[in-house]
Design a binder for these strands. Structure first.
Lengths: 147, 147
DNA sequence: TTAGATGCAAAGACTTTGCGCACTT
DNA sequence: AAGTGCGCAAAGTCTTTGCATCTAA
Protein backbone atom coordinates (compact mmCIF):
# COMPACT_ATOMS: atom_id res chain seq x y z
CA UNK A 1 0.00 0.00 0.00
CA UNK A 2 1.76 3.04 -1.24
CA UNK A 3 0.46 3.94 -4.67
CA UNK A 4 -3.15 2.98 -4.07
CA UNK A 5 -4.04 5.99 -1.99
CA UNK A 6 -3.08 8.52 -4.66
CA UNK A 7 -4.90 6.64 -7.33
CA UNK A 8 -8.03 6.63 -5.26
CA UNK A 9 -7.54 10.30 -4.52
CA UNK A 10 -7.67 11.00 -8.22
CA UNK A 11 -10.79 8.92 -8.72
CA UNK A 12 -12.41 10.68 -5.81
CA UNK A 13 -11.49 14.06 -7.21
CA UNK A 14 -13.15 13.12 -10.47
CA UNK A 15 -16.31 12.00 -8.74
CA UNK A 16 -16.26 15.06 -6.54
CA UNK A 17 -16.17 17.27 -9.59
CA UNK A 18 -18.96 15.24 -11.19
CA UNK A 19 -16.64 14.13 -13.95
CA UNK A 20 -17.02 10.65 -15.31
CA UNK A 21 -14.70 7.89 -14.28
CA UNK A 22 -13.67 5.89 -17.32
CA UNK A 23 -11.24 3.12 -18.04
CA UNK A 24 -8.95 5.51 -19.91
CA UNK A 25 -8.86 7.92 -16.99
CA UNK A 26 -8.11 5.13 -14.56
CA UNK A 27 -5.26 3.99 -16.74
CA UNK A 28 -3.78 7.48 -17.09
CA UNK A 29 -4.13 8.02 -13.36
CA UNK A 30 -2.39 4.78 -12.48
CA UNK A 31 0.44 5.53 -14.88
CA UNK A 32 0.90 8.96 -13.35
CA UNK A 33 0.92 7.48 -9.89
CA UNK A 34 3.41 4.76 -10.63
CA UNK A 35 5.77 7.09 -12.46
CA UNK A 36 6.72 9.59 -9.85
CA UNK A 37 8.88 11.46 -12.31
CA UNK A 38 8.01 13.64 -15.29
CA UNK A 39 6.72 12.13 -18.44
CA UNK A 40 5.84 13.42 -21.84
CA UNK A 41 2.39 12.80 -23.24
CA UNK A 42 3.96 10.25 -25.53
CA UNK A 43 5.57 8.32 -22.69
CA UNK A 44 2.35 8.37 -20.76
CA UNK A 45 0.46 7.18 -23.81
CA UNK A 46 2.78 4.26 -24.34
CA UNK A 47 2.56 3.27 -20.70
CA UNK A 48 -1.20 3.56 -20.76
CA UNK A 49 -1.36 1.42 -23.87
CA UNK A 50 0.45 -1.36 -22.06
CA UNK A 51 -2.62 -1.51 -19.84
CA UNK A 52 -5.19 -0.60 -22.48
CA UNK A 53 -3.91 -0.75 -26.04
CA UNK A 54 -7.00 0.88 -27.46
CA UNK A 55 -6.43 4.21 -25.71
CA UNK A 56 -5.43 6.85 -28.23
CA UNK A 57 -2.97 9.71 -27.81
CA UNK A 58 -5.69 12.30 -28.24
CA UNK A 59 -7.54 10.80 -25.31
CA UNK A 60 -4.41 11.03 -23.19
CA UNK A 61 -4.05 14.69 -24.08
CA UNK A 62 -7.67 15.33 -23.23
CA UNK A 63 -7.39 13.52 -19.93
CA UNK A 64 -4.19 15.32 -18.98
CA UNK A 65 -5.90 18.61 -19.73
CA UNK A 66 -8.87 17.61 -17.61
CA UNK A 67 -6.61 16.55 -14.75
CA UNK A 68 -4.84 19.88 -14.95
CA UNK A 69 -8.05 21.85 -14.64
CA UNK A 70 -8.78 19.75 -11.56
CA UNK A 71 -5.30 20.57 -10.31
CA UNK A 72 -4.39 16.93 -10.12
CA UNK A 73 -1.59 17.33 -12.61
CA UNK A 74 0.80 20.09 -13.56
CA UNK A 75 2.91 20.45 -16.63
CA UNK A 76 6.16 22.19 -17.41
CA UNK A 77 8.03 23.11 -20.55
CA UNK A 78 11.56 21.90 -20.36
CA UNK A 79 13.52 23.33 -23.22
CA UNK A 80 13.13 22.11 -26.75
CA UNK A 81 11.34 18.89 -25.97
CA UNK A 82 7.75 18.04 -25.46
CA UNK A 83 5.69 19.24 -22.51
CA UNK A 84 6.16 17.11 -19.40
CA UNK A 85 3.46 16.22 -16.91
CA UNK A 86 3.47 15.00 -13.35
CA UNK A 87 1.15 14.72 -10.42
CA UNK A 88 0.52 17.87 -8.50
CA UNK A 89 1.33 17.90 -4.84
CA UNK A 90 5.04 17.57 -5.12
CA UNK A 91 5.76 21.22 -5.78
CA UNK A 92 9.21 21.63 -7.22
CA UNK A 93 11.23 23.28 -9.91
CA UNK A 94 13.21 21.76 -12.72
CA UNK A 95 16.79 22.21 -13.76
CA UNK A 96 17.20 21.21 -17.36
CA UNK A 97 20.61 20.59 -18.82
CA UNK A 98 20.80 22.11 -22.28
CA UNK A 99 23.63 19.78 -23.16
CA UNK A 100 22.49 16.31 -22.15
CA UNK A 101 18.81 16.99 -21.62
CA UNK A 102 18.67 15.58 -18.12
CA UNK A 103 16.24 17.07 -15.67
CA UNK A 104 16.89 17.59 -11.97
CA UNK A 105 14.01 18.19 -9.64
CA UNK A 106 14.66 20.62 -6.87
CA UNK A 107 12.56 21.67 -3.88
CA UNK A 108 10.50 24.81 -4.31
CA UNK A 109 12.28 26.53 -1.46
CA UNK A 110 15.17 27.35 -3.78
CA UNK A 111 12.86 29.83 -5.41
CA UNK A 112 11.74 31.56 -2.23
CA UNK A 113 14.18 34.44 -2.50
CA UNK A 114 13.71 34.93 -6.19
CA UNK A 115 9.97 34.71 -5.76
CA UNK A 116 9.91 37.47 -3.16
CA UNK A 117 12.26 39.57 -5.23
CA UNK A 118 10.14 39.31 -8.37
CA UNK A 119 6.99 40.07 -6.47
CA UNK A 120 8.50 43.15 -4.90
CA UNK A 121 10.12 44.43 -8.06
CA UNK A 122 7.61 43.51 -10.75
CA UNK A 123 4.49 42.38 -8.93
CA UNK A 124 5.06 39.05 -10.64
CA UNK A 125 3.75 35.90 -9.01
CA UNK A 126 6.18 33.11 -9.72
CA UNK A 127 4.58 29.77 -10.43
CA UNK A 128 6.67 27.29 -8.53
CA UNK A 129 5.10 24.31 -10.22
CA UNK A 130 6.10 25.45 -13.60
CA UNK A 131 9.61 26.74 -13.27
CA UNK A 132 12.17 25.27 -15.62
CA UNK A 133 15.66 26.61 -15.42
CA UNK A 134 18.06 25.99 -18.29
CA UNK A 135 21.77 25.52 -17.84
CA UNK A 136 24.48 22.90 -17.59
CA UNK A 137 24.40 20.01 -15.17
CA UNK A 138 27.50 19.24 -13.15
CA UNK A 139 28.59 16.46 -15.50
CA UNK A 140 28.27 18.50 -18.65
CA UNK A 141 29.90 21.57 -17.12
CA UNK A 142 32.78 19.34 -16.12
CA UNK A 143 33.04 17.89 -19.59
CA UNK A 144 33.09 21.33 -21.10
CA UNK A 145 35.87 22.40 -18.77
CA UNK A 146 37.92 19.29 -19.55
CA UNK A 147 37.31 19.38 -23.28
CA UNK B 1 23.69 56.28 -36.06
CA UNK B 2 22.36 53.79 -33.61
CA UNK B 3 21.47 50.57 -35.36
CA UNK B 4 24.33 50.60 -37.83
CA UNK B 5 27.02 49.60 -35.40
CA UNK B 6 25.35 46.38 -34.32
CA UNK B 7 24.53 45.41 -37.85
CA UNK B 8 28.13 45.87 -38.85
CA UNK B 9 29.22 43.94 -35.81
CA UNK B 10 27.22 41.00 -37.02
CA UNK B 11 28.64 41.21 -40.52
CA UNK B 12 32.12 41.41 -39.07
CA UNK B 13 31.50 38.41 -36.89
CA UNK B 14 30.45 36.43 -39.93
CA UNK B 15 33.54 37.43 -41.84
CA UNK B 16 35.71 36.77 -38.82
CA UNK B 17 34.35 33.23 -38.63
CA UNK B 18 34.87 32.80 -42.37
CA UNK B 19 31.15 32.45 -42.89
CA UNK B 20 29.64 33.86 -46.02
CA UNK B 21 27.82 37.15 -45.98
CA UNK B 22 24.65 36.84 -48.00
CA UNK B 23 21.65 39.00 -48.68
CA UNK B 24 19.44 36.79 -46.51
CA UNK B 25 21.84 37.03 -43.58
CA UNK B 26 22.03 40.80 -43.92
CA UNK B 27 18.26 40.99 -43.90
CA UNK B 28 17.91 38.77 -40.83
CA UNK B 29 20.62 40.73 -39.06
CA UNK B 30 19.00 44.07 -39.78
CA UNK B 31 15.64 42.80 -38.58
CA UNK B 32 17.19 41.54 -35.36
CA UNK B 33 18.90 44.85 -34.83
CA UNK B 34 15.85 46.99 -35.43
CA UNK B 35 13.64 44.83 -33.23
CA UNK B 36 15.25 45.07 -29.86
CA UNK B 37 12.65 42.78 -28.34
CA UNK B 38 12.03 39.07 -28.71
CA UNK B 39 10.64 37.70 -31.87
CA UNK B 40 9.53 34.31 -33.03
CA UNK B 41 11.02 32.82 -36.16
CA UNK B 42 7.75 33.55 -37.88
CA UNK B 43 7.79 37.23 -36.94
CA UNK B 44 11.37 37.51 -38.05
CA UNK B 45 10.55 35.79 -41.32
CA UNK B 46 7.71 38.16 -42.08
CA UNK B 47 9.86 41.17 -41.29
CA UNK B 48 12.67 39.81 -43.44
CA UNK B 49 10.28 39.21 -46.29
CA UNK B 50 9.31 42.86 -46.26
CA UNK B 51 12.90 43.52 -47.28
CA UNK B 52 13.42 40.41 -49.39
CA UNK B 53 10.24 38.55 -50.25
CA UNK B 54 12.09 35.57 -51.66
CA UNK B 55 13.65 34.58 -48.33
CA UNK B 56 12.07 31.40 -47.06
CA UNK B 57 11.28 30.41 -43.48
CA UNK B 58 13.72 27.54 -43.62
CA UNK B 59 16.49 29.94 -44.49
CA UNK B 60 15.57 32.10 -41.52
CA UNK B 61 15.74 29.08 -39.24
CA UNK B 62 19.11 28.13 -40.65
CA UNK B 63 20.45 31.64 -40.27
CA UNK B 64 19.18 31.94 -36.72
CA UNK B 65 20.88 28.66 -35.89
CA UNK B 66 24.10 29.88 -37.45
CA UNK B 67 23.91 33.15 -35.55
CA UNK B 68 23.41 31.20 -32.35
CA UNK B 69 26.49 29.10 -32.86
CA UNK B 70 28.38 32.36 -33.37
CA UNK B 71 26.82 33.62 -30.16
CA UNK B 72 25.27 36.56 -31.93
CA UNK B 73 21.78 35.48 -31.02
CA UNK B 74 20.19 33.61 -28.14
CA UNK B 75 16.82 31.96 -27.93
CA UNK B 76 14.46 31.17 -25.12
CA UNK B 77 11.39 29.02 -24.72
CA UNK B 78 8.60 31.01 -23.24
CA UNK B 79 5.79 28.71 -22.29
CA UNK B 80 3.59 27.08 -24.89
CA UNK B 81 4.44 29.30 -27.79
CA UNK B 82 7.17 29.25 -30.36
CA UNK B 83 10.82 29.77 -29.55
CA UNK B 84 11.82 33.43 -29.34
CA UNK B 85 15.09 34.89 -30.51
CA UNK B 86 16.96 38.07 -29.78
CA UNK B 87 20.40 39.51 -30.13
CA UNK B 88 22.93 38.37 -27.61
CA UNK B 89 24.61 40.97 -25.48
CA UNK B 90 21.61 42.05 -23.52
CA UNK B 91 21.73 39.26 -20.99
CA UNK B 92 18.44 38.99 -19.20
CA UNK B 93 15.76 36.66 -18.01
CA UNK B 94 12.13 36.46 -18.98
CA UNK B 95 9.01 36.46 -16.88
CA UNK B 96 6.17 34.94 -18.84
CA UNK B 97 2.60 35.40 -17.73
CA UNK B 98 0.76 32.12 -18.11
CA UNK B 99 -2.52 33.99 -18.22
CA UNK B 100 -2.05 36.76 -20.78
CA UNK B 101 1.16 35.58 -22.40
CA UNK B 102 3.03 38.83 -21.91
CA UNK B 103 6.77 38.70 -21.40
CA UNK B 104 8.73 40.91 -19.05
CA UNK B 105 12.46 41.20 -19.49
CA UNK B 106 14.41 41.46 -16.30
CA UNK B 107 18.09 42.07 -15.62
CA UNK B 108 20.23 39.01 -15.05
CA UNK B 109 21.21 40.16 -11.58
CA UNK B 110 17.87 38.89 -10.25
CA UNK B 111 19.27 35.42 -10.77
CA UNK B 112 22.54 35.97 -8.97
CA UNK B 113 21.44 34.47 -5.66
CA UNK B 114 19.62 31.58 -7.24
CA UNK B 115 22.54 30.95 -9.53
CA UNK B 116 24.99 30.69 -6.64
CA UNK B 117 22.59 28.53 -4.70
CA UNK B 118 22.10 26.06 -7.55
CA UNK B 119 25.81 25.88 -8.21
CA UNK B 120 26.56 25.16 -4.59
CA UNK B 121 23.78 22.66 -4.09
CA UNK B 122 23.64 20.86 -7.42
CA UNK B 123 26.73 21.93 -9.33
CA UNK B 124 24.30 23.32 -11.87
CA UNK B 125 25.37 26.23 -14.05
CA UNK B 126 22.37 28.43 -14.64
CA UNK B 127 22.11 29.87 -18.11
CA UNK B 128 21.04 33.43 -17.60
CA UNK B 129 20.31 33.99 -21.27
CA UNK B 130 17.81 31.25 -21.39
CA UNK B 131 15.80 31.55 -18.23
CA UNK B 132 12.06 31.78 -18.60
CA UNK B 133 10.04 31.96 -15.44
CA UNK B 134 6.34 31.22 -15.58
CA UNK B 135 3.80 32.90 -13.37
CA UNK B 136 1.24 35.66 -13.27
CA UNK B 137 2.00 39.26 -14.17
CA UNK B 138 0.79 42.01 -11.86
CA UNK B 139 -2.28 42.73 -13.99
CA UNK B 140 -3.42 39.15 -14.20
CA UNK B 141 -2.75 38.45 -10.53
CA UNK B 142 -4.85 41.52 -9.73
CA UNK B 143 -7.65 40.33 -11.99
CA UNK B 144 -7.60 36.94 -10.35
CA UNK B 145 -7.87 38.51 -6.91
CA UNK B 146 -10.74 40.77 -7.98
CA UNK B 147 -12.61 38.14 -9.91
C1' DT C 1 36.08 27.42 -59.52
C1' DT C 2 33.91 25.46 -55.70
C1' DA C 3 32.25 24.92 -51.16
C1' DG C 4 28.67 26.72 -48.98
C1' DA C 5 23.88 29.02 -48.95
C1' DT C 6 19.24 29.29 -50.59
C1' DG C 7 14.36 28.24 -52.16
C1' DC C 8 11.01 25.10 -52.43
C1' DA C 9 8.51 21.35 -51.02
C1' DA C 10 8.06 17.54 -48.27
C1' DA C 11 8.59 15.39 -43.94
C1' DG C 12 8.69 15.39 -38.87
C1' DA C 13 7.47 16.11 -34.02
C1' DC C 14 4.00 17.42 -31.02
C1' DT C 15 -0.73 18.66 -30.20
C1' DT C 16 -5.61 19.77 -31.22
C1' DT C 17 -10.04 19.02 -33.31
C1' DG C 18 -14.25 16.90 -35.71
C1' DC C 19 -17.28 13.26 -35.74
C1' DG C 20 -20.02 9.22 -34.84
C1' DC C 21 -20.29 5.40 -31.64
C1' DA C 22 -19.79 3.63 -26.87
C1' DC C 23 -20.07 3.88 -22.16
C1' DT C 24 -20.93 6.16 -17.53
C1' DT C 25 -24.27 7.85 -14.70
C1' DA D 1 -32.28 7.50 -21.40
C1' DA D 2 -29.16 11.27 -21.78
C1' DG D 3 -25.10 13.20 -22.40
C1' DT D 4 -20.23 12.86 -21.77
C1' DG D 5 -16.08 10.59 -23.27
C1' DC D 6 -13.64 7.85 -26.63
C1' DG D 7 -11.15 6.16 -30.86
C1' DC D 8 -9.87 7.32 -35.17
C1' DA D 9 -8.26 10.20 -38.59
C1' DA D 10 -7.39 14.56 -40.23
C1' DA D 11 -5.71 19.06 -39.54
C1' DG D 12 -2.68 22.50 -37.29
C1' DT D 13 1.55 24.64 -35.65
C1' DC D 14 6.27 25.00 -35.42
C1' DT D 15 10.61 23.30 -37.18
C1' DT D 16 13.83 20.42 -39.86
C1' DT D 17 15.57 18.20 -43.95
C1' DG D 18 16.53 16.81 -48.97
C1' DC D 19 17.81 18.37 -53.13
C1' DA D 20 18.79 21.06 -57.19
C1' DT D 21 20.23 25.61 -58.09
C1' DC D 22 22.64 29.70 -57.21
C1' DT D 23 26.33 32.61 -55.30
C1' DA D 24 30.11 34.54 -52.37
C1' DA D 25 34.76 34.28 -52.13
Amino acid sequence: MNVEPRLNDIISALRGAAHRVTAAKRAVASVLVERSDHSTADEITRAVQRLRPEVSPSTVYRILEEFETLQLVVHAHVGHGATVYHLAGTVHGHLVCTNCGSTIEIPARHFDLLSGDLMKTYGFTLDRHHVAIAGLCADCAGDAATR
